[in-house]
Amino acid sequence: MINFLTKIMPNVIDNWSGDNGILLGIWQTLYMTFWTTLIGGVLGLILGIALVVTDQHGILANRVVYNILDKIVNILRSIPFVILLAVAFPLTQILVGTTIGPKGALVPLILGTAPFYARQVQNTLVQVDSGVIESAEALGYNPWTIITSVYLREGLPDLIRTSVLTIISIIGLTAMAGAVGGGGLGYIAISKGYQRYQNDITLVCTLLILVLVFVIQALGDLWARKVDHR
C-alpha cells in the first residue's frame, strides 16, 4: 500500500509528517478555521445583530450607532484580504505577540471575517417577519428576549446556511493567510507544491480542503433542514 502511494505521490509521502508536513498543515488549517469561526463568528454575530436592531425600523433604532457600525463594516469589507494581512501586522504584533504562524494569521483572519459575517447576519435577520417581532413586543418582551428568542430562533435556519457560507470562505482565507506565513494547507500547497513543482502535493492539499468544505457544507445543510419548519 505504502509502496503504491509512494509511487503515485512520492512528495506527499515524503512531506507527510514532521516540520512543515501536510499533517501539521491540516492541523494548522483546522486551528485557524476554528478560532476564526469562533471569534470572528461571535464578533460578526454581535455586529450583525447590532446593525439589525439599530436600523431605523429596528427595535432599538439609533441612527448614530447604526451609521458608525455600518461604516466600520463597509470599510473593513472594502480592504482586499491580502492587503489586510499586511495592514494588520502591527495590530497582530500587539495582540498576539507574533505575526507569523497560524496564531499570527488569526488577527487579520478575524478582521476579514467579522464584518463579512456581520453583513450576512444582518441580511438574514432583517428577513425575520416584522410582524412576529411586533407580536413579541406586544407580549411585553424586552429587546434582549426578542433578539435571543425571536430573531435568533426564527432566523436560525438561514443563519446556519450563511454561517456555512462564511466558514467556507474562512477556509479560503486561511489558505491565503497561510501563503504569506500563516502555515496550513495553503502554505504547503504554495511553498512546496507550486514553488518546487511537486504537483502531487498541490493536488492533495486541494483535495483535503475540498473534503473539509464538503463535510462542513453537508453538516450545515443537515442541521438547517432539521430546524427549518417553514
Binding site: 417577519d129 410582524g131 412576529v132 425571536v150 430562533r153 426564527e154 435556519p157 427549518d228 419548519h229
Partner: peptide, 8 residues
C-alpha cells in the same frame, strides 16, 4: 397575518 413563529 397571525405572526406566529415558524420555528416553534
Amino acid at each position: 397575518h397571525f405572526n406566529l413563529m415558524d420555528a416553534l
